[in-house]
């Protein structure tokens, strides 16, 4: 019983990892957005190396989760899709980093 409880405790950081962010494509997007205030669709596409369709689908998933906000605007009559992390998204990526650090520490026995 005690052993199982302690095992559950050890595995808790893994269970706490947000699967939505853990997917490599979305992690890339979240990582880039976390280091800037906002970026447009073209910039994210260039930096992440994702295709238009792939980026669009994953951004929608992140938007549905409330992690990013997507705003369309016109600059000099050219449409620009401005993407930024919401407060919830910033919190989520921060928690993800902390949990991953815990998991790695566990694995490395630190």
């Amino acid at each position: 019983m005690n052993q199982s409880e302690s095992s559950n405790e050890e595995l808790q950081p893994i269970a706490d990892i947000d699967p939505l962010i853990h997917a490599p494509t979305r992690l890339k997007i979240m990582a880039y957005l976390s280091i800037v205030e906002s970026a447009d669709f073209t910039f994210l596409m260039n930096q992440t190396g994702l295709t238009r369709g792939n980026l669009s689908v994953n951004l929608r998933k992140l938007e549905d989760a409330g992690y990013v906000s997507i705003k369309k605007e016109f600059v000099d009559r050219i449409p620009r899709t401005l993407i930024r992390l919401t407060d919830e998204g910033r919190q989520a990526i921060q928690s993800y980093r902390e949990n991953m650090q815990l998991v790695l520490n566990e694995l490395l026995g630190e």
């Binding site: 205030e37 073209t42 600059v75």
Partner: peptide, 16 residues
């Protein structure tokens, strides 16, 4: 920047 760079590689606003 807006006329030459942004249409090619996109726009980004860095954190304050």
């Amino acid at each position: 920047k807006n006329r030459v760079t942004v249409p090619r590689i996109g726009y980004v606003k860095f954190s304050s």
